[in-house]
C-alpha cells in the first residue's frame, strides 16, 4: 500500500516497512522514527548505516552480529530503540524486518 512519509509517496507493507529500499531517504527515516517516538541522534544513525550495509550485502541480521560489529553494545541498542530494537531499527532503515520462513 501507499503512504506519504516526509512529503514523499512510498510503498509500504501493512506493518509499515518500506517495500523498496531505493525509495528510502534520511528524511523518511527521521519521520518513521518520530512515529515511534524516537528522536534520531548520531548514535542512532551509526546503527542504521550498519544495518543498511548488512542489507546491501544480503547478510542476515542478528543480535550477535550487532554485538560483534562493535558499532553498539546490546544494552545501548535497546536504549536507542526501546521495545523491539531490531524490529524498529529496520523499519527506520527502510529494510525488511528480520523474518522466519513462514
Amino acid at each position: 500500500m501507499q503512504k506519504i512519509i516526509a512529503n514523499t509517496t512510498v510503498e509500504v507493507t501493512e506493518q509499515g516497512y518500506l517495500e523498496d529500499f531505493n525509495q528510502w531517504t534520511k528524511e523518511i527515516g527521521t519521520e518513521i522514527a518520530k512515529e515511534k517516538e524516537i528522536e534520531m541522534t548520531d548514535e542512532h544513525w551509526k546503527v542504521i548505516t550498519y544495518l543498511q550495509e548488512k542489507h546491501k550485502n544480503e547478510e542476515a541480521l542478528s543480535v550477535r552480529g550487532i554485538k560483534k560489529s562493535g558499532v553498539v553494545n546490546i544494552k545501548e541498542f535497546y536504549s536507542l530503540f526501546p521495545g523491539g530494537p531490531l524490529k524498529i531499527s529496520t523499519m527506520i532503515a527502510g529494510i525488511p524486518k528480520p523474518k522466519s520462513c513462514i
Binding site: 531490531l86 524486518k97 528480520p98 523474518k99 522466519s100 520462513c101 513462514i102
Partner: peptide, 10 residues
C-alpha cells in the same frame, strides 16, 4: 521468539 511472532510472513 526474538522475532515479532511465531509466524512472521503475512
Amino acid at each position: 521468539t526474538p522475532l515479532d511472532g511465531a509466524f512472521t510472513k503475512p
